[in-house]
Nucleic acid binder design. Structure first.
Lengths: 112, 112
DNA sequence: TTAATATACATAATTTTCTTATGTATATAA
DNA sequence: TTATATACATAAGAAAATTATGTATATTAA
């Protein structure tokens, strides 16, 4: 997924969150958005992204429609109703995860 | 490692950080410390912990000495010099990872 | 006394989730 | 015409978990 092995398990959450904010996106667009947002710190590889999208679709969290733009096929993904419900809990999970990791690594001793 | 699949890849960092703070610890002690610190949110499984300790030792980041306490063997782990250097960069990596994840999931819009 | 729980280690089979490599195809810029 | 960008996909392999199992001692509860 990138140069950082820590990011395992977060890809699904990232995809779902982006689709919550953007209604519909295609794979390449997702890689570019993540690259921009993280100033190039996180670079999605196709070998990670596409299988993840296919799995989310197979699990009923995403639905697709293909569209031809400039003679190239784009496959747009959007949240299903089920996917929309999942986003919330996935983000809460991530938030809790970050809190616990902060505690364990002592990253925010006081926090305020 | 626990009920949270997000924590993949962070186990090594957690172990190294605990050993930076505690000089020496044995496996079971590490599981209990993590459980305490996270109020039971992160529960290390033995199948994850012991192989991780063995790998860190094989990589020269940890060294061990066995000790018998109450007729039971404890295997204490401590940072090597190499391990001591690694902790710092591993924690920086984790910190950066959390920052990027916060950006992507929009967990701290303003941050201050 | 005996069954359950806690302490303490370990490994094997399997699964999940990546990386790396490869493949197809079109458009554009050097 | 070659490299880069856009756009999809999959296969082989590696890394790092989960789940299950095994050994052994100590303590607590039924």
């Amino acid at each position: 997924m990138s140069n950082n092995q820590l990011i395992k398990g977060t890809l699904q959450t990232i995809i779902l969150k982006l689709l919550e904010d953007n209604k519909q996106m295609y794979g390449y667009e997702i890689t570019q958005k993540v690259k921009e947002t993280t100033s190039g710190e996180i670079l999605l590889t196709e070998g990670a992204l596409y299988p993840a999208l296919h799995k989310l679709e197979a699990d009923g969290l995403l639905e697709t429609h293909a569209q031809v733009v400039d003679n190239r096929v784009r496959k747009y993904y959007a949240l299903t109703e089920k996917g929309g419900k999942e986003v919330t809990s996935k983000i809460e999970e991530a938030q809790n995860f970050i809190e616990q990791l902060n505690l364990l690594l002592n990253l925010k001793p006081g926090l305020q």
